[in-house]
C-alpha cells in the first residue's frame, strides 16, 4: 500500500458568494465521502481562510522573514506537510521555523474548528 495526500483547493470568493446553505450541502457531501471511504482515509481537516495564513522563509542571514500571507510562489511546489498541535500561533511559528526549508519556506494555516 502507498499513502497519498489529497489537497482540496477552492475559490474562497465563490464559497462566500454561495452562502451558508450551499456550504451546509458541501459539509453533508464531505460527510458522505468520509463514510464511504472510511477504510482508506487516514485523516483530514478543513482549513481556515487563506487570509489567516502566515508564511515563513529563511532570510538568508540566519533568521526568518514572517509575512501575513499564504505561500504563493509559482516556482515552488507543495512538498509535504506536518500537522502540528500548539497552544497559539507564536508556538506554531516557533516549531515551523525548525522545519528544514532550504529550498523554500512554510505556510502555517490554522485548522478550522467546528463548534
Amino acid at each position: 500500500m502507498a499513502q497519498y495526500l489529497v489537497l482540496i483547493y477552492q475559490d474562497e470568493a465563490a464559497v462566500d458568494a454561495a452562502g451558508r446553505q450551499a456550504s451546509g450541502e458541501v459539509y453533508a457531501e464531505h460527510g458522505q465521502f468520509m463514510t464511504k471511504y472510511e477504510s482508506a482515509l487516514r485523516g483530514g481537516n478543513a482549513l481556515e481562510r487563506s487570509s489567516t495564513a502566515t508564511s515563513i522563509r529563511p532570510d538568508g542571514a540566519g533568521g526568518f522573514t514572517v509575512t501575513d500571507a499564504p505561500f504563493a510562489e509559482t516556482k515552488e511546489a507543495l512538498g509535504g506537510y506536518y500537522l502540528v498541535e500548539a497552544p497559539d500561533l507564536d508556538e506554531a511559528v516557533a516549531i515551523a521555523k525548525q522545519v528544514p526549508m532550504a529550498e523554500g519556506g512554510v505556510e502555517v494555516r490554522p485548522i478550522r474548528v467546528f463548534d
Binding site: 481556515e48 481562510r49 487570509s51 489567516t52 495564513a53 502566515t54 501575513d68 497552544p87 497559539d88 500561533l89 507564536d90 506554531a92 502555517v108 490554522p110
Partner: peptide, 10 residues
C-alpha cells in the same frame, strides 16, 4: 481581527 482570533495570535 479575524486573523488574530482564528490563527490564535496570543
Amino acid at each position: 481581527k479575524k486573523k488574530i482570533a482564528a490563527a490564535r495570535i496570543p
